[in-house]
Every structure is written in C-alpha cells, then in structure tokens.
Design a protein around this nucleic acid. Structure first.
Length: 257
DNA sequence: TTTAATGATTAAAG
DNA sequence: CTTTAATCATTAAA
C-alpha cells in the first residue's frame, strides 16, 4: 500500500488547509472548549430581524455546533492514535527486516513521512467535511432569510407613502430613514432594504405598481425643499413616465421626470 | 401544490 | 459606507 507516493501529494496543501483551520477556529470547533459564559458570539448584526429570537434558535444552534465539535475531536483523536500505532508497527517491521538486509535511516525517515502524509490527507478530509457541516448549520439557523416575516400594515403604509410622494427621487436621507423606521416600527436597515427592493422592483415593472401608485399618490405633501415643479403637479399616475429617476441629471435636487 | 409577493443577503461598482 | 441587480427563502394567494 505504501507506494512510492506521498512526496508528491498536493502542491498547495497549506492553502486550503489553512482556510479550513481558520474557519474551524473562528467557528469555535477546533478552539478551546468554551463552556459556560464568555460568548462574544458575533452574529451577523446587519439585519434588524426580530428582537425576540435569541432564545430557542440560538441555543439550538449551539447545541448542534457542540455536537459537530465533539465528533470532530473524537475523530481527530482516532486518527492521531491510528497514525502513531501504524507508525510504530511499520517501524517494528523495518527493525525485523534490518536483520536480513541493511536499512538506511533515510529509508526509515521516508517511510514515516509517507505514513504521516497519508494520515494528514485523511485529517484534511475530516476538516473539510466538518466545515461543510458547520456551513450547513449556519445557513440553517443564522440566515435571517429563514426568519423573514412580512411587515405590519403600518410599516408598509408609511414606507409606501414616502416612496410614492418622492417618486422623483426616492432616496431618503439617513434622517428620513430613521424617521420612517420609527414610524413603522422597524429598523433603519429594514428601511434601507425596503427602498432598495422597492426601487428596483418598481423600475423593473412599473405597470404592476400603477394601482398602488394611485392609492398613495394623493396622500402626501410634496417635499417642501423642492418647490420647482409646479406644472407637473397633475402628473397622471396612470401613464407612468417611461424615464427612471436615474438617467436625468439631478444638478441640485430638482425634479428629473 | 404551484405561483406571486416580499424581506434579506450577496456580489459588484461607486 | 452606499447603491443596483440578482438571488435566496419564506409567506400569502391562486
């Protein structure tokens, strides 16, 4: 079995292996056992998400992670043990043979290297599959898309009001976003997400939003700072302007329809 | 059950 | 950092 290989195994073994090791460490699989408190567990804080999900979900996640961790460590130990056992076994064989033929120390060393190479590739496979398991676990528990809930009527009302009353420039400032978030009972990130989605989806299929536009068109006052477009006030929403808000240059915040 | 709507994430560009 | 555009995953509607 110990053919003349093992020296030419993989050219970049360290590149991949370093990544796997780093990830396992970062994920707390291969690091020191952190029983009890001390969790600076950095959950992706980008999305507002529900404020009341940090009980069952998280502990469930940690339980599963600890399970993975256990398996990983026991397997790793098994490999270490098997490796050393096998090495000593081969050494014994070589010692026996050395009675009938001369065996150079170099040959022995080569043999040991081959064995260690073999076992380290197995170890690498273990790390690989462990990383996969962690990734799956992460996507299963920590992906906010899986916890998505529709906004309240109030929130969508507020957001749509702003959007359709600022159709010419639907980019709320940071302050405006905070205001909208407060009024709708959602986070600023969620407001940003909503506007990002709304803009692209409105632009992509304006006809689909005509009715919605009609509903919200009359409900809000025009931005006080833009007092320019008096003539376009009666802009009939049933004939959506084919131009977007982007292509027309907006030198100073003027209307661009 | 299939489809549409929708909030969140990602990559890429500024 | 922000945005667009594409995509993912869930929910509501058909």
């Amino acid at each position: 079995v110990l053919s003349i290989r093992g020296i030419q195994e993989e050219d970049p073994p360290d590149a991949q292996l370093m990544r796997l090791d780093n990830m396992l460490l970062a994920e707390g699989v291969s690091g020191p056992e952190k029983r009890g408190r001390g969790g600076p567990m950095a959950v992706a804080a980008t999305s507002g998400g529900c404020p009341n999900d940090n009980s069952i979900e998280h502990s469930d996640y940690r339980a599963k992670l600890s399970q993975i961790r256990q398996i990983y460590h026991s397997e790793l130990e098994k490999y270490e043990q098997a490796c050393s056992e096998f090495t000593t076994h081969v050494m014994n064989l070589l010692r026996e043979q050395s009675r009938t033929r001369p065996i150079s120390p170099k040959e022995i060393e080569r043999m040991v290297n081959i064995i260690h190479g073999k076992f380290s590739t197995i170890q690498m496979q273990l790390k690989q599959s462990t990383c996969e398991a962690v990734m799956i676990l992460r996507s299963r528990f920590l992906d906010a898309r899986r916890k998505r809930r529709n906004f309240s009527k109030q929130a969508t009302e507020v957001l749509n009001e702003y959007f359709y009353s600022h159709l010419s420039n639907p980019y709320p400032s940071e302050e405006a976003k905070e205001e909208l978030a407060k009024k709708g009972g959602i986070t600023v990130s969620q407001v940003s997400n909503w506007f990002g989605n709304k803009r692209i989806r409105y632009k992509k299929n304006m006809g689909k939003f005509q009715e919605e536009a009609n509903i919200y068109a009359a409900k809000t006052a025009v931005d006080a700072t833009n007092v320019v477009a008096q003539g376009n006030q009666a802009n009939s929403p049933s004939t959506p302007n084919s131009g977007e808000w982007e292509p027309v240059e907006r030198p100073d915040g003027f209307f661009c329809l």
